[in-house]
Design a protein around this nucleic acid. Structure first.
Lengths: 244, 244
DNA sequence: CCAAAAGTGTTGGCTCTACACCCATGA
DNA sequence: TCATGGGTGTAGAGCCAACACTTTTGG
């Protein structure tokens, strides 16, 4: 009943040259497509927010979704995610991390599209450019009150937030959400905000400073009150460290 | 040699390419394909081993690889992984968990195939059937001394072992690697084996038993020496618990 | 009675948590 | 001088790690 011939080795063996893709695909069995989608997160107005875009055209054109699109032949997954993210936001050089791959055939009503979900973080949510023409608009939404989302993007949002929460506890990932230089109060507020629980200031400060993650800068922030010491991360690359 | 019977019979999806500019399929340009590959792990002869298969045909036919293959249209990713795993081993009902998605266009020299990597665990490595005809043979290898692997499967193996190690520390995932009923010594040996470090028996036993993860059975194991109490897991479903 | 694996408690050090007041500045 | 947010220390509890001998059985 089942012919194994098609997939000897589980992979198409007769396709060694991408020379004549058109004619070949015409006769070939339909295959799922590959897309990437990126949950872009940032702190804005004291809230954890996600960036959503609205498609200009198509069946789902009035629904919000995360920026994403099909992966091209010869393209790395992360490269595709960066390309689509830049197209939607103008951002380059963001922190990017693979979340999970969503393959439910019904997640896209039009076709079977397997989507590799990414999480992206930016420190400065204001530095978003107008989206490219394929999108009608883009906007930041508080993650706790997202509008109805296209595809399975609500689930993706959950994965993103969960990953960020847990990674805050065992890595220095927070450096992606803070400016180069910040006060300790900002750092602590970030943790309280995203983990959604109060943190004892004295214990937290003692522990964090003891682990040598931050560098105290000579300058101070002058404002309406007692000046705050300024800090910056010693290493702006991902380190796995128990934070809490 | 191309027979689409499998695909078409399985779940035909009319791909009519709606005029959507975002995820456009209109020209049927070449797209990356989607595969799944599964790192199957088990404890055998007191070692952590992975199951590898050798392809019967194709360019890579003398290289070892993890069981896997292309995802069909309309198929869930995990479903595809189970199908390929059963085809290679006869096993059903294994524990399966998504690891990571590997998308390097050069990972498969023949075509751009994005592969969703899974980790599978079995308690009884002896219960492996002869692989289906597409494979020449299958064998268990110690994970520390794997033979040269096809594709990027060496990397996948690393992801699998790393995931297993870390998940042993914060979940009850071990129930997938032990029989229904076991002695505490077996349980502890599993941890020492996979984490590759000695564990203090008294501290470990006290902590584990205190967290109520295991149920002590009335019977005892009789052998050449002092009989050992038998235990079994209270819940044989994944629980996130700090174990170490 | 011997070999081999199973089973068991205590102590000291360290870490974590709880908790409240003074400080520096600009307005 | 006052309002506001920045900055600091201590003590008690609980947890964790280190550590070695006794028990039970089969041969």
């Amino acid at each position: 009943v089942v012919s194994q011939v098609t997939e000897i080795a589980g992979r198409p063996i007769q396709e060694r040259a991408p020379a004549s893709p058109t004619r070949r695909t015409a006769t070939r069995a339909a295959r799922p497509k590959v897309a990437v989608d990126t949950v872009l997160l940032a702190i804005k107005d004291g809230k954890l927010k996600a960036y959503l875009v609205q498609l200009r055209l198509g069946a789902l054109c009035d629904r919000w979704a995360f920026p994403g699109g099909l992966v091209r032949v010869g393209e790395m997954l992360e490269e595709a995610a960066r390309r689509e993210l830049e197209c939607a936001t103008g951002l380059t050089e963001v922190y990017l991390e693979q979340l999970f791959t969503f393959g439910d055939p019904s997640r896209d009503p039009r076709a079977h599209v397997v989507s590799v979900g990414y999480m992206a973080l930016v420190a400065d949510p204001a530095r978003i450019a107008k989206p490219a023409s394929k999108y009608a608009r883009g906007e930041w939404f508080e993650v706790s009150t997202l509008p109805p989302l296209a595809y399975d993007h609500a689930l993706m949002a959950e994965y993103g937030v969960t990953r960020l929460k847990s990674k805050l506890e065992y890595s220095n990932i927070a450096y992606n959400l803070l400016p180069e230089v910040f006060t300790f109060a900002q750092f602590e507020a970030l943790y309280e905000l995203i983990l959604a629980r109060p943190i004892d200031r004295r214990n937290f400060r003692r522990r964090i400073l003891a682990m040598g993650l931050l560098r105290k800068l000579p300058s101070k922030l002058r404002g309406a009150h007692r000046p705050a010491a300024l800090y910056s991360f010693n290493k702006r690359s991902l380190q796995i460290i128990e934070m809490l």
